[in-house]
């Protein structure tokens, strides 16, 4: 089974993908812009195993992954496009170690908006 993962684009991220040919999707009447990546079953299992809080939601999207993972994944998409290779890249052991370290801090504190 194939799942999906979405990266929400704010203005800064939109700028970064503008010339990269990555398909950007409108959500909720264009209020939100997202990149959707397809995640093959095996890769989905790996993500769920690496991040204990991650889950597949009712839409079939992998959600509740660390913010650090989404950031890393976005950087990989900018470099490699919105395919499974970008996900594999974000899951490389050295990156995972850094993501997990940041994720443990995310569980303790998230700065509130001003």
């Amino acid at each position: 089974m194939t799942y999906k993962i979405a990266i929400v684009l704010d203005k800064a991220r939109m700028e970064k993908v503008r010339s990269k040919g990555v398909q950007v999707k409108d959500l909720y009447g264009g209020y939100l812009k997202v990149i959707e990546l397809e995640v093959p079953d095996e890769l989905a299992k790996r993500i769920l195993a690496e991040f204990p809080r991650a889950r597949i939601d009712a839409r079939g999207f992998i959600e509740e992954t660390p913010i650090a993972f989404k950031r890393e994944l976005f950087d990989s998409v900018v470099r490699m496009g919105a395919g499974p290779a970008a996900i594999e890249d974000a899951m490389r052991p050295e990156k995972l170690a850094r993501i997990k370290e940041l994720a443990s801090k995310e569980d303790e504190y998230l700065p509130p908006p001003n």
């Binding site: 979405a6 929400v8 704010d10 959500l27 909720y28 009447g29 209020y31 939100l32 889950r55 939601d57 009712a58 839409r59 999207f61 959600e63 509740e64 913010i67 989404k70 995310e106 998230l110 700065p111 908006p113």
Partner: peptide, 23 residues
Amino acid sequence: AERFSGSFVRGLIAEGIEPPPII
């Protein structure tokens, strides 16, 4: 259809993005 997902909304909030008023 664009379905609602509480997890998706929580993800937005965690990233510091205010969810749009339509949702």
